[in-house]
Nucleic acid binder design. Structure first.
Lengths: 185, 185
DNA sequence: AACTCGTGACTGAATGTTCACTCATTATGA
DNA sequence: TCATAATGAGTGAACATTCAGTCACGAGTT
């Protein structure tokens, strides 16, 4: 069995880790290549530019989140329970590899954010479908979707990115706090 | 009357605006100087390095927030009312100059964040005193302070940084959502 | 008033470094 | 054998920072 290394994936992971640790200005293409164990030119075989690599990394991180998190939700559970399961699973997914949260937090605050979320919409995000199921939506407060996202997903990303650790107990209380925020009555 | 220009302030503002608009990697010292209308070397008369300038700018933005916002709060009002006044005033302060929120959102997600908030603690932040008044604290859910901040201040910064505009009506609903999140019962 | 220092702010060209990116060449695997 | 992947030295541009020199101006002197 010949193990072929997935170099594009290694390069994306290296970018993600370096951005999380040192910020965008500390993640030069040279450092990324070195961290990924490839030559300086290799990234350009697979990505046209640093910017394209950034977007590809963003899409991968978002997709990994959906893939890891959706199977953990009981689709038949009541809306609130589903929400808490989902939020907790998201938090845990970030927690287990905090570089994902560190990368996302920085990307989403940066000028790349707009283009990145546009590309995400083009590819489609299964998490959004889950979040827009009618029985959940009817319980939500009348607020723009971006506000709902900031009060739920956004909080999870930032708590992990900031390195704040929560016990299982606190975790549940934060999930409930987010639920209280976005629902009325 | 001779109007002497406060060049250090102009340089801080230029950094803040450029970081908000183009990100940290797009805010070179050359660009900052040009934007501030001074020569490339002038920033170094007042700040030892780019990093020092970043921290000074952070402290200024945070202080401007406190100064602008605290007088708008009725110190004798009930806790919830005070909270909503405070949150709304914060949001409006960012809204009126979105570069403040853009700069803060990026700084707080970056590797500068830790050192920056340490320096803020050393100088002291009047907003924190307001947020820790006993009659308010006793209503808050049992959550770490960082979580409370993420669910309140953090939401305001990010909504403005992301360019989401809210009507006065929606504004009040978001403030109430934050209040629901951080309080129990 | 005029003159002359002294001091600190300001300038912008220069410096050495690091960056994103290229490309001729070599390795790999089907 | 051939297409594609990978390499790493090389390139020009851009970067943070420096510094020798200029400027503005208040204090001290006449």
């Amino acid at each position: 069995m010949t193990t072929t290394i997935d170099r594009p994936a290694a390069i994306r992971t290296a970018l993600r880790d370096l951005v999380a640790e040192r910020g965008f200005h500390g993640a030069s293409m040279g450092a990324v290549a070195k961290h990924a164990g490839v030559a300086a030119g290799t990234a350009y075989v697979h990505y046209d530019s640093k910017e394209e690599l950034v977007y590809a990394t963003y899409l991968e991180v978002k997709q990994q989140l959906s893939v890891a998190v959706l199977p953990q939700v009981d689709l038949d559970a009541a809306p609130k329970e589903r929400f808490v399961q989902l939020w907790t699973a998201i938090y845990r997914h970030y927690r287990e590899e905090p570089a994902r949260a560190g990368f996302l937090a920085q990307l989403e605050a940066s000028p790349f954010a707009e283009e990145a979320s546009q590309r995400l919409q083009e590819t489609g995000d299964p998490l959004i479908e889950q979040a827009t199921r009618p029985d959940l939506v009817e319980l939500l407060a009348d607020l723009p979707m971006e506000v709902i996202a900031a009060l739920t997903l956004g909080v999870a990303v930032r708590l992990v990115a900031a390195g704040i650790s929560l016990s299982g107990d606190q975790l549940e209380r934060v999930a409930e706090a987010c639920w209280r925020a976005v629902t009325v009555g």
